[in-house]
Amino acid sequence: MQEQTVALSKEQIRALPVFQNLHPENILVIRTLEQCREIQDELNQVKILGFDTESKPTFKVGEKSTGPHLIQLASHDKAYLFQVSTEILGFLKPILENERQLKVGFGLKNDTSGFRRQGIEPKSLIELSKSFSSFGYTSQVGVQTAVALLFQRYFAKSKKISTSNWAVKYLSSKQIAYAAADAYAALLIFDHLYTQQLLTPQLQQQISRILDDSVSRT
């Protein structure tokens, strides 16, 4: 299926109705291993996860990031925000390295470099930013533009929130909403691209094989 359109301007995007994020009660902030264990079974049942990370920004030349400090996973019903610790990374490692569980998102190359420093090699990552050539976009597309193209909704992106301190012990309500929306929107975008066959044929086939394999093993 092919769709063609002209590039949307920032003004056109801002004029759209606001994107509907998950309700706050469906956004879980995970700080302890005990909380991880409480959601382990439901996470294991999800075959496709919206995926993103956040890190405390670096401002000095040559300063290296110590992130990720927050890892976001989303199903169609919930977003799980994991505040990173050694224990939580240990819990997430089998999920991130599970070849039969898709992790979909934007800008995943930057995310994976941080995990490799922690001894984690994420598998079955689906990068969505390069999947909009049928809409007339030859370069990478961000989540805000993708939401506008596919759903005719305005996905607000606050630079103040994106560059805030993600390593704090207690996230603000704005940080929580922002982080959850990134992972949740990525999942919805993937659903649309995949079901409408707007991904490359090679990627469509790769995803189908993974999902078929997941079903056959359940």
Rank of each mutant, 00 (worst) to 15 (best):
Q2P: 02
E3V: 13
L8Y: 11
S9H: 06
S9M: 04
K10D: 12
E11N: 05
Q12A: 04
I13F: 11
F19T: 00
N21Q: 03
L22S: 01
L22F: 05
H23E: 13
H23W: 09
I27F: 06
V29N: 00
T32D: 06
E34V: 04
E34R: 07
Q35F: 03
C36I: 01
E38Y: 08
V46F: 12
I48C: 14
L49K: 13
G50P: 02
F51P: 03
F51Q: 15
D52L: 04
P57K: 11
T58F: 11
T58R: 10
F59A: 06
F59V: 09
V61P: 00
G62L: 06
G62D: 09
K64P: 01
S65W: 11
H69P: 00
L70C: 05
Q72S: 07
Q72Y: 11
L73P: 03
H76W: 09
K78G: 02
A79I: 03
Y80C: 05
Y80I: 01
Y80S: 02
T86E: 15
I88E: 08
L89V: 01
G90P: 01
G90L: 00
L92G: 02
K93M: 05
I95A: 05
L96G: 08
L96S: 08
E97H: 12
N98F: 07
E99Q: 13
G107H: 10
L108H: 14
L108F: 14
T112L: 13
S113D: 13
F115Y: 14
R116T: 10
R116L: 10
Q118L: 15
G119L: 09
E121V: 13
P122M: 12
E127I: 11
E127D: 15
L128A: 11
S131H: 10
S133F: 09
S133V: 06
G136L: 03
G136Y: 12
Y137D: 00
Y137S: 00
T138R: 06
S139R: 09
S139C: 01
Q140N: 12
V141I: 11
G142Q: 05
L150S: 02
R153I: 00
R153E: 05
Y154L: 02
Y154N: 05
Y154A: 00
K157I: 02
S158T: 05
S158D: 10
S158L: 04
K160P: 01
S162M: 06
T163Y: 14
A167W: 07
S173H: 13
I176V: 15
Y178K: 04
A180P: 02
Y184W: 14
L187S: 07
L188F: 09
D191P: 06
D191F: 12
D191N: 14
L193M: 07
Q202C: 01
I207M: 13
S208H: 14
S208E: 15
S208P: 07
R209S: 12
D212Y: 12
D213M: 10
R217S: 10
T218V: 09
